[in-house]
Amino acid sequence: MSDLLWWVFASLAIGGGLGMVTRKNPIASLLFLVLTFFSLAALYVLLGAHFIAAIQVIVYAGAIMVLFLFVIMLLNLGHDYRPDVRGGAWIVAGFATAGLTGWLLTRVLTTEGAVVAQGGELEIAAAVREWNAVGAIALPLFRDYLVPFELTSVLLLVAIIGAVLLAKRRV
């Protein structure tokens, strides 16, 4: 059953990606991207990372895509879009590298010795049982990875200031 579901959502994700890359209208491609995000969230659930799936839906699909939509609307790009695909040579080059990247990554990732550790799944299950789904993630996050966490908050602060400064109308 879960395999079937996985294939459905996997194909949805790839379709969304393709749609996003090929649509001329930015809004259409944005919506296709949102579709990909939802299918990914579903995949996360299948992979047992429920909290991550939730976060994915809230943060990505919700916040970032809305931001994109807002910017598209703000810049009034929705309608008189011209075909903005680069020259033929570039298309070929683009998809060639894409294919190559994909192939190489699959080779890297799927070689036997690539994944060393085993049994991660059981460990997660034990953690969830002990501190429910959110705690399983929160505990290591705030104990082992506290410093990176604080750094990301600083990063976000900087991003906010930068965004405000850049986008502010010159008075």
């Binding site: 996985w6 590298t97 894409a98 990247t101």
Partner: peptide, 28 residues
Amino acid sequence: MLTRSLVLSAILFGLGVAGVVVRRNAII
């Protein structure tokens, strides 16, 4: 399950690369 997901992420990554290289619209 694991390997299939990794293959899927590789494919998606490839798609992203193609988009970056091919498209000229900044938002896309």
